[in-house]
Design a binder for these strands. Structure first.
Lengths: 227, 227, 227, 227
DNA sequence: CATGAATGAGGTTTCATTCAT
DNA sequence: CATGAATGAAACCTCATTCAT
């Protein structure tokens, strides 16, 4: 939707170079400061070519975070788990899966994760503004659905206001999660990106412990009141 | 620290014009897109003057969010409450005060709040990067202090990992709070800024209910396990 | 001359699509701003194909106004009338026929007329410059021939300087005519093109009256002095 | 109105260099093809400076033709003659003065005249489109005023339709005049600009004869019918 | 004969900052 | 202390045309 067919048809190697360059640039600079000039130079293609592949700068970014990042991240959260959670209304179960996936995705692809997070920063670009609003709306809808289902099934406190819980959860599993993760590693996402060799990646066990910690707080916070 | 003495000595009226113009600009555009040219034009001063008052663009922004915004926001959170909470280790009590203050501050000064939130967006400017890191570190330290004190006093679950809880709380009382607030009003912060007349401000009662809602989740989530 | 044989041999439907797209583009934009990219996109052909049909941008334009527009316009001015006027030296009779044809052609094909008028605007393209010069020279020659014949036959004032009268007539029956016509309709050619539905086309009677008005001025102005 | 005060305050010598460069460029290329890059290079100023003097490209052009050219041309048509013609309703007398001024202006400043004529060519720029429409409207109003006054005073045929006569006269004293003049000199305006040394300027006597020739046609064409 | 990816020069404009007055 | 003209790098994007397939 965001990339032209020209881009889809590119030889894998060239396509990869462009993707890599874009991730690098949008990962390192806010959207407004990211430079298409630098991207094409790093990718070794001409300025004109980039505009054969993408309508404009915002279309490139859109593709990167909405299609590419989404697809890569999708590999970390199984569709099965999502489906099961939907059926059973198991919000918390789903959150655990989603958070774990998010953590590992961020550790495996920190620059891409950083680039995607920038969507929330807002920008002068109208297109980006719309993307942000839509992303927020969609996230909120999904969360609200889960919350309401969970309440109906008696797994969440029925007195909780879904309008309040859904953004809380969206944050808890998105930006806040990344922040906490980095605090846990003793750095920040930007610091991690600048000198990745300096920090040791969380082990699987640490990841589990970390996710359990957050989950425990959410579970207790959202559970129905004991009779 | 960020502003030169020339700026401090300015006639109140002129100073106010500059502050107002800066809030407007940094509230409406990401840091990189914010234009000093537009600010001086809106403030009715010369470009040279601006550089007499502030070293450069980032110094102006630094002053705006670290000195001005902090001072304005300080009026919404009484020092007394902060002190009492420190003494009693009453993290939750403090959070309630802080959140309420944050909500009202955001409603009273939405553009300034938006400008300040942009600090977290990261930027190409190194100075700003340092500011962001420092802001995060400081926030975390304060929170950690509270958490550890609360645990020692038996008011928080001693098994909670402070490294995990502090960023969670920082988010819950910062960006997440603003998001949730805006969802509650049916908009987003940017939407609210673009068309302020379109949305009705939360009433005092609504604010209380909103804060109570968040607090209840935190209280239950962080409380010591029942024996 | 301007189009390659490949273009002439094209299936009618495809050829029509290209012509239509070119008229649209050259009618809407000055030559320099007109975009071959947009034309091929609108026509649904490949860029390479366009260069199989026409040497380059200026050849396409050349064909459009010198071959296509000339042919279409020719349908509005009968060859018979032209021949008769030539034989009888009836400049004024010919002008009446030519003006009426020009008016109806412009009303029937306003975009094509606009595209053709652009030739007179001059351009950075050398080829176009030559076209313009040649067009002017040819028009002037025809007019001069008529004027001199008319003078010899006693239908025009013999004191008139043909070098002066011929460009006057060329304008009166070309750009000036179109302008006057549009003033009569209460708009301009560009305004008419932008919102064609907004203006009501001149009726046949109005066209006749309009042409008669211009002719009357020319007749009196160019007639031999009464003895 | 079109130029910023920055430009008005410039040292005469620098200002002249810029004006000269702009005339050269807009005289030699259609508006869309004219390049601000070439102008600043020729004028020996920086790109940024040009944008301190003028809002943008169209503002520069606007100033050049609406303020500068108008002022220069004004020197060739005395305000006194204009005023007198207004009082006496002497359209033809005014036209003679205006045409003579136009001819000499064009001979003295052919590139500036060419640049100004380009306004009528239409362009992709919206601002320019508005300029053109306004210019046409204004010219037509002035002409119509003259025509109606001339008719009331019995100097023009009362049966003439002002809506038809005014664009005719506007052309006759504008683009058509320049064309005819150049035909008289055996060239075209563009040919004259490219190789000015090749053509000999009309003498004063020739100019008078030329203007008389056009005037005679108009006089007879517009005069009231003899009783 | 058709295709459409590739090109890179060039377009206009904005920017933060300096410094002579 | 105030001014605002000057700067030139950099921004995003479009263009007509070519040529290998």
């Amino acid at each position: 939707m965001a990339a032209k067919t020209t881009f889809e048809n590119l030889p894998e190697e060239k396509r990869a170079r462009i993707v890599e360059a874009a991730i690098e640039e949008f990962g390192a600079h806010p959207y407004a400061s990211a430079s298409t000039n630098r991207i094409v130079k790093a990718a070794g293609i001409s300025k004109g070519s980039m505009y054969q592949y993408f309508e404009n700068k915002s279309a490139l970014y859109r593709w990167l975070v909405w299609e590419h990042a989404a697809q890569v991240k999708g590999r970390y959260v199984s569709a099965k788990a999502y489906g099961e959670a939907m059926e059973t209304g198991d919000l918390l179960g789903f959150l655990r899966v989603a958070m774990r996936g998010g953590v590992v995705f961020t550790l495996d692809h920190p620059r891409l994760a950083r680039a995607a997070l920038r969507l929330m920063e807002g920008s002068a670009d109208e297109e980006l503004g719309r993307m942000k609003e839509e992303h927020l709306r969609m996230g909120e809808q999904v969360m609200r659905m889960f919350v309401e289902k969970g309440q109906r099934m008696g797994k969440l406190d029925p007195d909780l206001d879904p309008e309040l819980v859904s953004p809380l959860i969206a944050h808890a599993t998105g930006p806040m999660l990344v922040d906490a993760m980095m605090v846990k590693m003793g750095t920040t996402l930007d610091g991690y990106l600048n000198r990745p060799e300096e920090w040791t990646r969380m082990t699987e066990a640490e990841i589990d412990g970390f996710v359990d910690g957050v989950m425990m707080i959410l579970e207790r916070g959202l559970a129905p009141k004991p009779a």
